[in-house]
C-alpha cells in the first residue's frame, strides 16, 4: 500500500475578483495556495477544515472540474493538468465525485436507473442490456435493489439518495473517488449507515478516496490519513491514530477541542478561538493562523512556516513545533 495513486504538487487555485468600471481584475481570492498531498493506493485520505479553507476547491481542481492556477496533479503517472480536454475524457471514468447535497445533485426528472446509467452512456457502453446489468450490480453494491430503478429521486430519503449518488460514481468502476461532505446533510442514524458503506466499499473494491469533511469525528471513523487545512494551506497531515492521539498544530488542537463530546461527564479544557477566519482575499502574512493563535510569537507574523516532518510521518507547519533531535 505504498504506491501513490495521486500526487498533488504545489497546487494553487486563485479566483479573480473583478471590480471598477472596466471590470478589471482588482484582486485574487487565494482559495488554495500551495497544497502538496499524496494519496496512496487503497487509502482514504481525509481533508478537513472549516468553511472557506479551500478543501472543496482542492477536490474539484484535482478532477479539473475547475482549472487550477498552477501546480501539478499526477494521477497514475499522468500529469492531469497538462492534458487537453479530449485527452482527459478517457481518464474521467477512473476518477469520480460524490457531492454533499443529495437533494440537489440528482436530476429530479430522471429515473434512478437513468441517472446511474448516464455515465455508462457517455463513456461508450452502447448496449442497453449491459448498461442495465451494470446499474443493477452497482445498486446491489450500495444496498439497494432492482425495484428502485424505475423510481424518481423525490421518492427516496436523504440517506438513500446519497447511496444513489455513490452508485452513480461507482458504476464506471473508478479507482479514485472524491467525496465532498458526503454525510453532512444526513441525520446521525443515517450518517452511520453511509459511513459503514464507504468503508465496506473501500475494502471490497480496493478504492482510493479523498474524503472532504468539516466534522473531525466523522473523519476519524473513516479515514486512514488526515490532512487539516486552514485558509488555503495544509497545516498538518498524519496518520489517523497519530493525529487524533497527538495533534500538534495549534489550529488542529483548537478544532478538536471545539467539538462537543456527547458525554456530560467529560469536561475538557476548551480552546476558544477568538474572532472569525480571516478573509482569503487578504489573508494574514506569514503564518496564516497567527492572528487567532494563542501561542503566536513575533516570528509567526514574519516568517511563513513550512510543512515539516516531526517524525513518524507526522507533518506540521508551525514554528513552535520542530522535529525532535
Amino acid at each position: 500500500m505504498s504506491e501513490n495513486l495521486l500526487t498533488i504538487q504545489d497546487l494553487k487555485v486563485y479566483f479573480d475578483v473583478k471590480g471598477g468600471l472596466l471590470k478589471r481584475t482588482v484582486a485574487h481570492v487565494k482559495a488554495v495556495d500551495g497544497v502538496n498531498l499524496e494519496i496512496k493506493k487503497g487509502e482514504i485520505l481525509g481533508l478537513v477544515g472549516e468553511s472557506g479553507c479551500g478543501k472543496t476547491t482542492v477536490g474539484r481542481a484535482i478532477l479539473r472540474l475547475l482549472e487550477p492556477t498552477s501546480g501539478a496533479v499526477y494521477f497514475n503517472g499522468n500529469d492531469i493538468l497538462n492534458l487537453h480536454r479530449s485527452q482527459l475524457k478517457p481518464l474521467r471514468h477512473d476518477m469520480q465525485i460524490v457531492f454533499q447535497d443529495p437533494f440537489s445533485s440528482l436530476d429530479p426528472r430522471s429515473r434512478i436507473g437513468e441517472i446511474i446509467a448516464e455515465g455508462l452512456r457517455v463513456h461508450g457502453v452502447k448496449d442497453a442490456d449491459e448498461r442495465r446489468q451494470r446499474v443493477l450490480e452497482t445498486l446491489k453494491l450500495v444496498g439497494m435493489n432492482e425495484t428502485h430503478m424505475r423510481r424518481f429521486p423525490h421518492e427516496f430519503s436523504g440517506g438513500q439518495r446519497q447511496r444513489i449518488g455513490i452508485a452513480r460514481a461507482l458504476v464506471l468502476n473508478p479507482s479514485f473517488i472524491v467525496l465532498d461532505e458526503p454525510v453532512s446533510a444526513l441525520d446521525v442514524s443515517i450518517q452511520s449507515q453511509v459511513l459503514n458503506l464507504l468503508k465496506d466499499l473501500q475494502k471490497a473494491l480496493n478504492l482510493t478516496m479523498l474524503f472532504i469533511a468539516h466534522d473531525m469525528s466523522v473523519v476519524e471513523h473513516v479515514c486512514d490519513r488526515v490532512a487539516v487545512m486552514y485558509l488555503g494551506k495544509v497545516v498538518e497531515i498524519s496518520s489517523r491514530e497519530e493525529l487524533f492521539r497527538n495533534p500538534q498544530h495549534p489550529y488542529t488542537q483548537a478544532l478538536m477541542s471545539a467539538i462537543p463530546i456527547p458525554n456530560p461527564k467529560i469536561k475538557r479544557e476548551r480552546i476558544i478561538l477568538q474572532g472569525d477566519v480571516p478573509s482569503p482575499l487578504n489573508p494574514p502574512k506569514a503564518c496564516r493562523f497567527h492572528t487567532r493563535c494563542r501561542e503566536a510569537i513575533a516570528m509567526c507574523s514574519e516568517v511563513d512556516p513550512i510543512l515539516e516532518d516531526l517524525g513518524n510521518h507526522h507533518f506540521c507547519s508551525c514554528h513552535l513545533r520542530q522535529p525532535t533531535n
Partner: peptide, 16 residues
C-alpha cells in the same frame, strides 16, 4: 451511532 472523537470504532452502530 454517533462517531465520538478519540474513540475510534471500525464499524459504527446503525439504526436500520
Amino acid at each position: 451511532s454517533i462517531p465520538i472523537l478519540g474513540e475510534f470504532k471500525d464499524r459504527l452502530e446503525v439504526i436500520p
